[in-house]
């Protein structure tokens, strides 16, 4: 029983970071109708910059500066790359291929500038795990969870309760109409990309202290983030948060109990190393959800079936 609780909590804490990456995806996908496949690579690049800053700065300053750098990188990418896609090609394939190009560019820059070796990332609350009646909670995980939750809350408040958020939502809903209503939509796009990549950067910095910092640290996380975003129907913030946490729990439990489940079901094979299946869960979640509930667990019915 303690082990079950332990695994659930660990999974939920880790899962919150998927939600943060997923939120970045949702913010960008909402405003610009582009699924950014370069999200993870950009986040990792920013995390490396933050790492080099943290070699010289105290943690809070480095973290804040890293987030700002991420925002600037996102806004610049929108201004210098995404906006250069010809207007009539904005929908369809070209933006997606552009984001794949971004994936390569930022991955290459990371490896080219910082090399491929792993680096330890500074932790603000180092120390032994907290013991709650036999359930151990790592300080790094707890910190990660706290920051993720705060970020999600901040974004929610921004989008739901400020005029800027209203205008951002309007731009996402109908760009031409927003432009004609006097909204400088190009600046809103920059803002959305900035916010999206800031999410990726924060997630990168949180993950790096949990794992260690490598150029492809976030590749798999991107898939989990997509899965989390799909749980929210690619347009719901709360759904993405719940999706991320659920996915983390599912992963964590799979890693321990999959063998038992298989035995309990009397399936004709054995699972000796269930932790190998942890990452495949995201794939299963995406595929099953798209079949069963394409609008996500929380999304409104927007996805059009053919």
């Amino acid at each position: 029983m303690t082990q079950l609780l332990q695994q659930t909590i660990t999974g939920a804490l880790t899962g919150s970071v998927y939600a943060v990456v997923g939120l970045g995806l949702v913010v960008i996908a909402q405003a610009t109708e582009i699924i950014n496949f370069g999200q993870a690579a950009m986040g990792t690049f920013v995390t490396f910059i933050a790492w080099s800053l943290l070699l010289r700065l105290p943690y809070p300053a480095g973290f804040l500066l890293g987030t700002i750098v991420a925002f600037v990188v996102g806004a610049l990418v929108e201004r210098l790359v995404i906006r250069m896609v010809p207007e009539k090609e904005r929908t369809g394939l070209n933006p997606l291929i552009v984001t794949l190009g971004l994936l390569f560019v930022f991955y290459g820059l990371t490896v080219g500038i910082y090399g491929g070796q792993p680096h330890p990332f500074p932790q603000p609350f180092a120390g032994p795990p907290i013991d709650l009646h036999g359930v151990h909670i790592g300080r790094a995980s707890l910190y990660l969870f706290g920051v993720s939750l705060a970020l999600v809350l901040a974004l929610y408040l921004l989008f739901r309760h400020t005029r800027l958020g209203l205008v951002l939502r309007a731009t996402a809903a109908n760009r031409t109409a927003a432009e004609l209503a006097g909204v400088p939509t190009d600046r809103m796009m920059m803002l959305a990309w900035g916010l999206g990549i800031a999410c990726a950067g924060v997630a990168g910095m949180l993950l790096a202290q949990l794992l260690s910092l490598t150029p492809n640290m976030m590749d798999v996380v991107l898939v989990f983030a997509f899965a989390a975003a799909v749980v929210g129907g690619l347009d719901s913030m709360v759904g993405t948060l719940v999706g991320g946490v659920l996915l983390g729990v599912l992963q964590s439990l799979t890693g321990v109990y999959l063998g038992n489940v298989v035995r309990w079901l009397h399936l004709p094979f054995n699972i000796a190393q269930p932790q190998q299946y942890r990452d495949l869960i995201a794939l299963v979640v995406i595929v099953v959800l798209l079949i069963v509930r394409p609008q996500g667990l929380f999304g409104r019915k927007r996805v059009v079936k053919l």
């Binding site: 991955y107 290459g108 490896v111 080219g112 491929g116």
Partner: peptide, 20 residues
């Protein structure tokens, strides 16, 4: 910089240039 390791960056830049 590690020029050799930058290869993916060049590939990505090529993609961007071609698409744009």
């Amino acid at each position: 910089l590690n020029v050799v390791a930058l290869q993916p960056a060049f590939a990505g830049a090529a993609v961007l240039l071609v698409v744009l």
